[in-house]
């Protein structure tokens, strides 16, 4: 579904990614792991069209997307839920969710997707007329995920969804991700919470210093000594 072939990304003279290769098949959960500054966010921002790679290609459903503008990529069903959430603070929760269904395809199914989102996060229904800027961090994360779902993603990219959340909420977020996946949405999960994300993933990639250091089935990676020592601290 998503094929990344040898992308190289530069910020000025500084090279951030060195020939990154990765794929996500439909209905899969794939984790992209790595330490801070390894290039995870750069990778997904390149996929989403905010950064142009200097070399390499990105295909989504067999179309080239690394030359498309960000909004065109969203139109194809590749949706990112950013770490910073990027909600519209002066709009209500309801309006934020409605904005998720901005594009034609999603607009037609607005009512259905609204039910879906409220089913996953019942609290949002209670908060629907509250301004998004006034919500707690966990609720904002729910709005961000909800808004992403309103766009009817075929591949959902989640950037650090558990960051800054209370442990209870973290577990809930991972459950929700699995539920979304069961609806047939492929998921690319970028996480520092290596253990949790490997547990729900099919496969995983490990980014180090801008290139893929390791890849494989999630269950295998969980057992590898290198991962256990460097990322799980066991």
């Amino acid at each position: 579904m998503l094929e990344i072939n040898g992308i190289e990304v530069f910020y000025g003279d500084y090279q951030a990614l060195f020939g990154v290769e990765a794929t996500v098949a439909s209905a899969e959960i794939v984790s992209l792991l790595g330490a801070n500054g390894a290039g995870k966010t750069t990778t997904i921002n390149t996929i989403c069209g905010f950064i142009r790679p200097r070399a390499g290609t990105i295909h989504f459903d067999n179309t080239i997307i690394h030359k498309m503008s960000a909004n065109k990529i969203v139109e194809k069903g590749l949706i990112q839920i950013p770490e910073e959430r990027m909600l519209f603070p002066d709009m209500t929760v309801l309006e934020n969710l409605q904005m998720g269904a901005y594009l034609g395809r999603a607009r037609k199914k607005l009512a259905d997707s609204m039910d879906w989102v409220y089913g996953l996060f019942p609290i949002l229904q209670k908060r629907q007329s509250q301004l998004a800027g006034t919500l707690s961090g966990g609720e904002q994360q729910m709005v961000a995920i909800g808004r992403g779902l309103m766009s009817l993603p075929r591949l959902l990219i989640l950037d650090e969804p558990s960051l800054g959340l209370a442990p209870m909420l973290v577990a809930e977020v991972f459950q929700v991700i699995q539920k979304i996946n069961q609806e047939g949405v492929a998921i690319l999960l970028v996480e520092q919470n290596v253990h949790q994300s490997l547990k729900i993933s099919n496969r995983a990639y490990l980014l180090e210093n801008g290139s893929i250091a390791m890849e494989g089935r999630a269950s295998e990676l969980l057992d590898r000594d290198y991962i256990r020592e460097s990322y799980l601290g066991i």
Partner: peptide, 17 residues
């Protein structure tokens, strides 16, 4: 609404298309 969204968070607006 898209206009207001762009005012409030331009990157967020791009992310919803």
């Amino acid at each position: 609404r898209a206009l207001r969204a762009t005012t409030q968070n331009i990157r967020g607006a791009m992310l919803v298309g």
